[in-house]
Design a protein around this nucleic acid. Structure first.
Length: 659
RNA sequence: GCCGAGUUAGCUCAGUGGUAGAGCAACCGCCUUGUAAGCGGUAGGUCGUGGGUUCAAUCCCCACACUCGGCUCCA
């Protein structure tokens, strides 16, 4: 009997009888590995455990605890979901069902336009568990397009995928169903259920089970909003019940940080429906935090040699025609207003107006880089279904700057902007960044190849000077130039896109911007768009979630609350508050109309950084009892000492994590 | 914009084809408080808005507004 020799990831070699499978290899290595195995990697390609080993292959085992392994579990669970739906809803069309981050989904179309409801999910989940208990094997077969079309004769979406694959027209939206080589494979896991799939899958449904169905949602077939709307069921699946529970717990924790909930509870911001969708009002406690953010931003921009400008909310349509916004983004703008001398629009961006300021007089190379800065209010008509608290809003404020510079200055300027951005974001408690470089989409862009190349390489150079890792997003740039987007990770690891630095050679052309060079000739400047917070509203929402409402002391709406133990201490408490306010701190007092324990609890629930309790001892000794958020109570602290501590804490923006 | 689910007291939520309830908050008393919920009472709602069905609608139907979960979009 002949043998195959394969190489493992550690470089060691193993010999197995010819015809052995990846699963046999796992068994030969060890029983624990065999138990954890869900698929294999054979010469770089993911395969089923049942795949036959080829001589000389490089093989590794994919286990359930790895991300690729969970991906397999999730994908297989999606198949079981489709099988359950097809059984429970005869005539259901099933389209695609990929694994996604933390879970999976599957898209269906039910006969007669029926939709899923919550009870359906319960029934579907029960049926899935029956299928899993039945330990049905996933059996792979490769078939011809003709045979696949016959197998899926009653499944219009599957037929469409098969036709695209066999025409060589498959794209990323077909991934998971078939591979780009045009090989069509199907997986059968019972007599009555077969699905079109590239694989790999777990060997039997018994390997699944640590899953939960989560929600139903509409989703367009192939993501095309002109196409049919399918019913999507989302679920999550893990390698163990412990991992599943942990994931569900993480979701609960994230829900507790929801900025909309916190904004309501903490009386920071609201969205009165009388005002209209996507429009927020800032209540006093939200507004003071915003003011501090803005004051800090202004201070940093002054230090950074930016010049402040102000521009109106409305502008004549001619301006937006000139800037190209009406051509490219009219759908995202509020509808026009007809006025006596023309048509006006709410501004969706500040840049056209900043261009007018630049163009207002002749400019010299000696003025460049010219950095204009504005906290500019803009209005964008976001479609009704896309609004999302402060994170997607129709009226917002950009910390917007437009920098006009020469092409030679570009790389230096971007380099210093990167320093500036990261320094500001760190002050707000973000330390984990990811950078994306978006490049040209030739189908949707203006400017010459040379300009795009030079601007893109300037952005790249700035990233590389800082030694920053970055991902290139091909074709993601705006129509007017390449950009760097900066994502941050928050306290619980979620990613938020915040800052952006964008090169623009379109607006300088459109506005015919020029400067007199050292050579005496006129030259065209390059413009950079740059926002750090992006939108103040959105940034505030992200901060709320990042800190779970427990703002660091420098940002907290109320930095300290004074609680007199009894009415006899009211005067002392009021005097203490006045003293602290005179030192620039935000302090309030709650008199002894309720018991102390109750008032302390209220202050803690409000996440106030310092609760100051004053009683007889304090009146006698000019001291204060300090109860910090997340720290230990100290009695008898001298007022002067507390003022010093608070001063240091605010200036160093020490973050006191909530317990 | 599309699919689905919602909207009841200031907040969080029960509830019913015969015009509504809890907890917290508010207000008023009592308690005089030393580090995370003291006790009692009072008040508070055109049940999102507008139509329709019905003897009767907060409940059923339709439209609209807003919210939520997705899809699509995001300069």
């Amino acid at each position: 009997m002949s043998a195959v020799v394969v190489t493992l990831p550690d470089g060691s070699q193993r010999s197995l009888p010819a015809g052995s499978t990846v699963g046999d290899l796992a068994v030969s290595i060890g029983s624990r590995l065999a138990k954890a195995a869900v698929a294999g990697l054979l010469d770089g390609a993911e395969v089923d455990l049942g795949a036959t080993l080829s001589d000389g292959a490089l093989v590794s085992i994919i286990t359930a605890e790895s991300e690729p392994g969970r991906h397999v579990l999730r994908h297989s669970t999606a198949h079981v979901l489709a099988q359950a739906v097809v059984q429970l809803f005869p005539g259901a069309q099933f389209s695609i069902g990929p694994a996604i981050e933390d879970g999976f989904y599957y898209d269906f179309e039910l006969p007669g336009g029926r939709t899923f409801n919550d009870e359906d999910l319960v029934a579907i989940e029960a049926r899935m568990r029956e299928i899993i208990r039945a330990a049905q094997p996933f059996t792979r077969a490769e078939v011809s397009a003709e045979e696949a079309l016959r197998i899926f004769a009653s499944q219009r979406y599957k037929r469409e995928i098969i036709e695209r694959v066999s025409n060589g027209a498959a794209d990323s939206s077909d991934s998971g169903e078939a591979d780009a080589s045009g090989t069509i494979s199907v997986y059968r896991n019972s007599a009555e259920f077969v699905d079109l799939c590239r694989g790999p899958h777990v060997p039997t449904t018994s390997r699944l089970g640590h899953f939960a169905l989560q929600k139903v949602a509409g989703a367009y077939w192939r993501g095309n909003e002109k196409g049919p709307m399918l019913q999507r069921i989302y679920g999550t699946a893990w390698e163990s019940d412990a991992a599943l529970r942990e994931h569900l717990h993480r979701l609960e924790e994230a829900a507790k940080r929801d900025h909309r909930k916190l904004a309501q509870e903490m009386d920071l911001i609201s969205f009165p429906s009388e005002l209209g969708g996507g429009l927020a009002v800032w209540h006093p406690k939200g507004a003071i935090v915003r003011k501090i953010m803005e004051d800090y931003s202004r201070q940093r921009h002054l230090e950074g040699d930016y010049q402040f400008v102000y521009t109106p909310h409305l502008a004549n349509a001619n301006l937006f025609a000139k800037s190209g916004h009406l051509g490219y983004y009219a759908d995202g703008m509020y509808p026009p207003m007809e006025m006596d001398n023309g048509t006006y629009y709410m501004k969706p961006m500040n840049c056209p107006m900043h261009c007018l300021i630049y163009a207002g007089r002749q400019r010299s190379y000696r003025e460049l880089p010219l950095r204009l800065f504005e906290l500019g209010n803009v209005y964008r008509y976001e479609r009704a279904g896309t609004l999302h608290g402060l994170l997607r809003i129709r009226g917002f404020t950009q910390d917007d700057s437009h920098i006009f510079c020469t092409e030679e200055q570009l790389a230096d300027e971007i380099t210093s902007i990167l320093d500036f951005v990261l320094s500001v974001l760190r002050r707000f408690g973000f330390h984990d960044f990811e950078f994306n470089l978006s490049t040209r989409d030739p189908a949707k862009s203006v400017g010459t190849d040379g300009m795009w190349e030079r601007a893109t390489s300037a952005l790249r150079e700035a990233l590389e000077r800082h030694g920053l890792e970055y991902e290139v997003k091909d074709g993601d740039a705006a129509f007017y130039g390449p950009k760097i987007d900066i994502d941050v990770r928050d306290a619980i690891g979620r990613k938020w896109q915040l800052s952006t630095i964008q090169a623009d050679f379109n607006n300088p052309e459109r506005f015919d911007l020029e400067y007199r060079g050292a050579d005496g000739a006129m030259h065209r400047p390059i413009m950079l768009h740059r926002a750090l917070f992006g939108s103040i509203e959105r940034f505030f929402g992200v901060l709320l979630e990042h800190y779970a409402g427990a703002f660091p002391t420098w940002l907290a709406p109320v930095q300290a609350r004074v609680l007199p133990v009894a009415a006899a201490h009211h005067d002392y408490a009021d005097t203490l508050a006045t003293t602290l306010r005179s030192r620039g701190f935000r302090v309030d007092v709650v008199h002894a109309d309720e018991q102390l324990g109750k008032r302390i609890r209220t202050a803690k629930v409000e996440k106030i950084p310092h609760v100051l309790v004053v009683g007889d001892d304090d009146v006698r000794d000019s001291t204060v009892g300090v109860n910090p958020r997340g720290g230990d109570v100290r009695r008898g602290v001298a007022i002067a000492d507390f003022v010093d501590e608070l001063t240091v804490e605010v200036s160093e923006s020490i973050v006191v994590e909530e317990q």
